[in-house]
């Protein structure tokens, strides 16, 4: 192959994203007659997310599955994608992709910071609070120490919902829960079987506070070196794989739910989300991205 891209993600090899990225790699290879090759690395083998992003900015032929909080380091507006209850469904994500204002941020990210977004319609599902007591209102979260990724967007969002965010590495969630150093975590369903979480927490509370949207990024310099038709193939297939895997993850959830209930976990689904949504607004205020949210909503024609 003339072009080889090494693609890194922090999820495990059994996460549906891994298979989806490999599927993407295969389709791209087929359509370019093997001239553009993508090698997929799971479990952050090539390094932590922030390091890889710094590398691809310098033209290293690597890519990374990332989120709005990380990209918000460079173009602040992307942080809004990680705000609480920012979007409510996959359909909205597909509409976001086509918004002109998002396109201007994407261009700024590419031109000023050298980061090229290939697509961002990869959705891991809703994040829920996983605790040892049922949660039905923001008050129930009061005083609970909840593990949350360290970026400010995440921390402020979880704080706004009523909990006390605790920044810990992803790998320490299991032992911290087991030792009761934290009272819970907020994760997607797919994380539960990955970490055997039924051994250490009892409730999944379906608060749906984030729809976890991922961005697939490569270096702009590397991207520019590709022939125009290769660039199209790369982004087209990225979107296609994202659509398929997001749907697949949604379908998997039913199976995971059955499995974890069989293993003794309780799913709390009778939650009135309105008070949570109201509480979450404070995060946008505190992070100074309330206007960004309003702008997007007006372009989407949403009244919220």
């Amino acid at each position: 192959p003339t072009y080889t891209l090494r693609y890194n993600h922090v999820l495990g090899p059994n996460h549906p994203y891994h298979a989806a990225l490999q599927q993407w790699a295969q389709r791209v290879s087929e359509r370019t007659n093997g001239d553009l090759q993508i090698l997929v690395f799971h479990s952050a083998q090539l390094g932590v997310e922030e390091d890889i992003i710094e590398q691809l900015r310098q033209g290293v032929p690597v890519g990374q599955n990332t989120d709005g909080a990380r990209l918000g380091n460079y173009v602040r507006e992307f942080g809004v994608f990680n705000g609480p209850y920012f979007v409510d469904s996959y359909q909205t994500v597909e509409r976001l992709v086509r918004l002109p204002v998002v396109q201007t941020w994407t261009d700024r990210l590419a031109n000023q910071y050298g980061i090229r977004i290939l697509c961002f319609n990869w959705v891991q599902g809703y994040r829920h609070f996983m605790t040892n007591k049922p949660i039905r209102t923001p008050q129930d979260l009061q005083g609970l120490r909840i593990r949350t990724p360290p970026a400010p967007v995440w921390q402020e969002s979880v704080r706004a919902l009523g909990a006390t965010p605790v920044a810990l590495p992803f790998g320490e969630i299991y032992s911290a829960l087991q030792q009761r150093a934290i009272d819970g975590a907020e994760l997607v369903y797919a994380n539960i079987p990955d970490m055997s979480l039924w051994e250490v927490v009892r409730y999944v509370n379906e608060t749906k506070h984030f729809l976890l949207i991922n961005f697939q990024v490569v270096g702009e310099a590397w991207f520019r070196r590709l022939p125009a038709n290769y660039r199209n193939i790369l982004t087209e297939e990225c979107r296609r794989a994202g659509q398929a895997v997001s749907r697949q993850i949604e379908e998997n959830e039913a199976r995971i739910k059955q499995d974890i209930q069989r293993r003794g976990m309780t799913i709390v689904s009778d939650i009135n989300l309105a008070p949570f949504q109201q509480a979450g607004l404070a995060a946008y205020q505190r992070l100074g991205i309330f206007d960004v949210r309003r702008l997007i909503y007006s372009q989407l024609g949403l009244e919220r």
Binding site: G143, R145, P150, T164, P165, A167, P169, A181
Partner: peptide
């Protein structure tokens, strides 16, 4: 560690 135990974790500690 102590701050987290007391329910007031320090965002910047790590």
């Amino acid at each position: 560690g102590v701050a987290r135990f007391l329910g007031r974790p320090l965002d910047w500690a790590m």
